[in-house]
Design a protein around this nucleic acid. Structure first.
Length: 171
DNA sequence: CGATTTTGACCGGCGC
DNA sequence: GCGCCGGTCAAAATCG
């Protein structure tokens, strides 16, 4: 099963509101996060060519914080679900993406001194999962993975603007 | 007092 | 079959 570039729309189902100005970052360590993010998608480059066929790598620019993300279409029982992983330069591991998350696990992963955190969407009946871990080699990067699709609106988007308008607002 | 976090236990898949 | 590894459970602690 192949993915195509239009599937990037699913990304917005997970990370609707990258309003980093609410993160209260320590000013000295995270000055690069102060600017409001803008989002553009650029063409896939060659850096991800070893990925299996059910994954798609897309470059993603969040102003001064470079992102790359990988989408994977699940097979078997989880068929139809999409997994999205991306890398963030951030000194905080929890980013406010507009959804409410309940933590359900923490695990030390082999070859990584930093623990991995497991979250589930706390909305009733919503099975979306998220995991967050800091990269081993470069501690300034955080890897976030979303799995599944929300069965409800983003609560933050519902109280203000539709999701795509929230994105536009920061351009 | 309800919701969430913490934390070790538990469990299932996989390689040997 | 066994042990490692990553993911989840669940009871107790903590939070608001």
């Amino acid at each position: 099963m192949e993915l195509n570039r239009d599937d990037h729309l699913d990304f917005e189902d997970f990370l609707v509101l990258p309003h980093l100005e609410t993160h209260k970052e320590p000013a000295a360590a995270c000055s690069s996060l102060k600017a409001k993010p803008s989002i553009t998608l650029s063409p896939v480059n060659g850096s991800c060519r070893d990925l299996p066929s059910n994954t798609l790598c897309v470059d993603y620019m969040l102003q001064q914080n470079y992102e790359g993300y990988v989408m994977e279409r699940m097979e078997g029982e989880a068929a139809g679900k999409v997994k999205v992983a991306f890398r963030t330069r951030s000194c905080l591991e929890i980013m406010d993406d507009g959804y409410k998350w309940r933590k359900y696990g923490k695990k030390k992963i082999k070859n990584n001194p930093n623990p991995r955190h497991y979250y589930r969407c706390s909305m009733e009946g919503c099975k979306v999962k998220k995991r967050v871990e800091r990269e081993r080699e470069d501690e300034q990067f955080v890897i976030t993975t979303y799995e599944g699709k929300h069965n409800h609106e983003n609560p933050a988007a519902a109280t203000s603007l539709p999701a795509h308008q929230n994105l536009l607002r920061y351009h």
